[in-house]
Nucleic acid binder design. Structure first.
Lengths: 107, 107
DNA sequence: TCTTTATATGAACATATTAACATATACGCA
DNA sequence: TGCGTATATGTTAATATGTTCATATAAAGA
């Protein structure tokens, strides 16, 4: 460990890697389109087209955002023929999302 | 309520205002500088200069971000002469931040 | 193999965000 | 009133982000 890292640790600072994961995850939840998608997947597994039609978003947009969420392991999918059914893949983050929604509702 | 809003409500979609608050709040947590500031304020009340020096960020950057956080009522301050002591102002959001940090650490 | 359907990808564009600099304001004190 | 310190603000430039269009890929079935 470098000297400045020791200083940071002693001062109670978050280590860089953790900070990166935390901010990336919050960033994922900081966009309306992604929150709407996750909220939908909270209720049920959906194909890409179902998501696009239900939320009235273009297919390519949905696909791009799903890739974003997939990279962060926030969603997963199973294949059935040509159809991909997406579902959420991080209970903890979904719980945090739910809490924030409740918090925002009752404020 | 408009017709399309009824449809959204029945379909379990988040209402627009809640969605806005939720995403704004997560956006606040989606930036390394702001997370570092909040994490510091989680530990103790700090003046603007203390924050800037402790985290090695320019004073004007800190001030800008504090205004951002203040607008969302995530921080507050008290004045002592020319010095402003900032502290966090949303227990619930701070708890969510803490949970996410723990989650990221142990993964 | 050809076609159809479902999904992914790449490039381009518009917009949003961030940090930096310079400067302004506010307060306390001589 | 004038000065020094602490903080805020306006502006700008660099970068990041989100959506769209056009197109590519992949699987299933005739």
């Amino acid at each position: 460990m470098e000297e400045f890292e020791v200083e940071k640790a002693l001062s109670g600072e978050i280590d860089e890697e953790t900070l990166f994961i935390v901010t990336q995850t919050f960033k994922a939840l900081g966009d309306p389109t992604r929150v709407r998608i996750l909220h939908l997947l909270f209720q049920k597994e959906c194909s890409v087209n179902e998501i696009a039609e239900t939320l009235d978003i273009r297919q390519s947009t949905v696909s791009h955002q799903l890739r974003f969420l997939k990279n962060l392991r926030l969603v997963k999918y199973r294949r059935a023929g040509t159809t991909l059914y997406y579902s959420h893949d991080d209970e903890h983050v979904m719980l945090i999302l739910k809490k924030m929604i409740d918090h925002a509702c009752h404020s």
